[in-house]
């Protein structure tokens, strides 16, 4: 009987020393308690999901790109099926020049500006800086010259042209169309306008009832 207990204890020690404890860091694929060969077809179903590989398509991806000139059945704000609003989707006026102002379908209000600030902070501030002065964090790591928003060229640039820059990129800046939906791009532009205005503000811009907070009379 004693031998049996000693053998059991030995087996326990052997198991623990082979398998270790919870929370160890390992690089090999995790152990599968219910392996696929014994329980097929449940955990790894042969369906294609987002960003998964597929042996069927020649590029090895399950995700497909829509063929050219495809029209999505519902897309855009207010479910606009066709992207035929050139102001909203290209930033162009009917005559083909860059449009000024914001598309009439979007309501420029505080909520819109807050959305713009949110998106700007995520996607633009790493390079352009939180106040748009071109001194983002990546500059310390060797990013080349990033222009400041606070000069006359960019203050006077049409909103539609800024929209084009976000959508298609410019110079060393890659397009951000995959990260910012068209309405978000306009929200970012609204916030950029707010940043530009803030930098050229004067004392006369401060409402009388708030002047006390800044210590001015």
């Amino acid at each position: 009987m004693r031998t049996l207990y000693i053998l059991t204890a030995f087996a326990v020690v052997l198991t623990v020393s082979l398998l270790g404890f919870r929370g160890r860091v390992f690089t090999h694929p995790p152990m599968d308690v219910f392996p696929e060969w014994a329980f097929p077809g449940m955990k790894y179903q042969p369906k294609l999901t987002q960003q998964t590989p597929s042996a069927f398509f020649s590029d090895g991806r399950a995700d497909r790109v829509a063929p050219p000139n495809t029209v999505a059945s519902s897309y855009g704000p207010a479910g606009q099926p066709l992207r035929n609003d050139s102001f909203l989707y290209q930033g162009r006026a009917p005559d083909g020049t860059f449009a000024r102002g914001f598309p009439p379908v979007l309501k420029v209000d505080m909520r819109f500006l807050n959305r713009g600030r949110d998106r700007f902070t995520i996607y633009c501030s790493p390079c352009h800086g939180l106040v748009g002065d071109g001194n983002g964090i990546v500059k310390k790591y060797g990013m080349g010259a990033v222009p400041t928003y606070h000069d006359d060229r960019l203050r006077k640039m049409a909103e539609g042209e800024i929209f084009g820059t976000i959508t298609n990129g410019k110079g060393q800046m890659n397009p951000y169309a995959d990260k910012l939906a068209p309405a978000d791009r306009w929200a970012v532009i609204a916030y950029v306008r707010a940043l530009q205005r803030a930098q050229i503000g004067t004392v006369s811009d401060v409402p009388d009832d708030r002047k006390g907070e800044l210590g001015i009379k």
Binding site: T15, L19, R22, G23, R24, V25, F26, T27, P29, P30, M31, D32, V33
Partner: peptide, 16 residues
């Protein structure tokens, strides 16, 4: 209980 649950099999997975 200790070894055959994801607390052991998956936690700590850090593939190269």
């Amino acid at each position: 209980t200790y070894y055959m649950t994801p607390k052991y099999t998956r936690v700590g997975y850090a593939p190269i």
